[in-house]
C-alpha cells in the first residue's frame, strides 16, 4: 500500500496537473483579493468589505473537484491505466489510494491558497493603512474561526476525492468535467429554487453548507435558505462520497481495460 501511495504522489509530481490546480486556485482567489484590496475605497474595506476580497476562495473547491476528475480520467485518456492495473491488479486498492492521495493534495492546495490570500489581504491592508478587525490575532486564533478554516480544508479534500470517484465512474474526461461544473454551478441552483427542501440535500449544496459555519452562527444563512446543520451537512457529504466511491470501486473492478 505504501508503495502505491508513493507511486501516486510520484505521478502527481511528474506531471503538471497538480501545479495547474494550484495556479488556477491562485488566479481564482489571490488575484481577485489583490485587486479588491488595491482598488476598492478605503472606507468600504474598513467596514468589513475586505471579506469580499477572500470570496474567490469559494471557487477553489470546485477547481478541486475538476482536479480529482482529471486525476482519474487522465489514466484512461492516456492509457496509463493499463500499467497501473498491471502493477496492481487489485483495482479497489488503486481507487482507494487515489481517493486518499488526491484528497490530501486538494486539501494542501486549499491550505496554501488560503494562506496566500490572507497574506495578500494583510499585506495590502497594512500598506494602505486599513484596519481589518477579522484579521486581528485574537480573531484568527479564535476556536470557531479555526474550526471554520479546518472545515473549509476538509471540504476541499472531500470534494477532490468526490471528483476522483466521478472520474472513475464516468471515465470520459470532457463530458465528466463539463457535466459536473454545469451541475454544481447551475443545475443544483435550479433544483434548489424549484424544490428547496430537496435542494439542501444535493451534493454540492451539502459541501457548501459544510463551509458555512460562520454564516450559520450569525444567522445570515437563514436569510438565504433553510440549511442543514453542519453535522447533517457532513453526514450528507460523506454519504455522497461513500456511495460514489463504492460505485467507482465496484465498476472499476468489473470494467474491461481494452
Amino acid at each position: 500500500m505504501s508503495d502505491l501511495i508513493r507511486a501516486e504522489f510520484l505521478k502527481l509530481r511528474s506531471t503538471r496537473t497538480a501545479l495547474g490546480l494550484f495556479i488556477a486556485a491562485l488566479v481564482a482567489s489571490v488575484l481577485p483579493a489583490a485587486l479588491v484590496m488595491s482598488l476598492v475605497p478605503h472606507d468600504m474595506l474598513s467596514d468589513g468589505g475586505a471579506t469580499i476580497a477572500a470570496s474567490g476562495l469559494t471557487l477553489v473547491p470546485i477547481l478541486a473537484v475538476v482536479f480529482g476528475i482529471l486525476g482519474m480520467t487522465n489514466e484512461y485518456r492516456h492509457g496509463t491505466i493499463t500499467y497501473t492495473y498491471l502493477a496492481t491488479p487489485r483495482r479497489g486498492i488503486v481507487i482507494v489510494v487515489k481517493l486518499v492521495c488526491y484528497g490530501i493534495v486538494g486539501t494542501a492546495v486549499m491550505a496554501a491558497t488560503a494562506l496566500l490570500v490572507v497574506l495578500t489581504i494583510a499585506l495590502i491592508a497594512a500598506l494602505r493603512d486599513i484596519a481589518l478587525p477579522w484579521l486581528t490575532a485574537s480573531n484568527v486564533s479564535d476556536l470557531e474561526t479555526l474550526r471554520d478554516a479546518g472545515m473549509f480544508l476538509l471540504t476541499t479534500g472531500l470534494m477532490t476525492a468526490f471528483g476522483v470517484s466521478l472520474g472513475a465512474l464516468f471515465r470520459a474526461q470532457v463530458p465528466t468535467v463539463a457535466g459536473t461544473v454545469i451541475w454544481a454551478l447551475a443545475a443544483e441552483s435550479i433544483i434548489a429554487l424549484v424544490k428547496p427542501r430537496l435542494g439542501i440535500y444535493l451534493p454540492f449544496a451539502a459541501f457548501q453548507q459544510l463551509t458555512m459555519g460562520g454564516a450559520l452562527r450569525t444567522g445570515e444563512a437563514d436569510a438565504i435558505m433553510s440549511s442543514l446543520t453542519r453535522p447533517e451537512a457532513f453526514l450528507v457529504a460523506i454519504a455522497y462520497i461513500s456511495v460514489f466511491s463504492v460505485a467507482a470501486v465496484f465498476i472499476s473492478m468489473r470494467r474491461d481495460v481494452t
Binding site: L10, S14, T80
Partner: peptide
C-alpha cells in the same frame, strides 16, 4: 499508454 507530459524515466519509475 504513457502520459505525454511525463518523462520516460518517470513513466518507468511510477510503474
Amino acid at each position: 499508454g504513457f502520459h505525454p507530459g511525463r518523462s520516460g524515466l518517470n513513466a518507468l519509475r511510477v510503474v
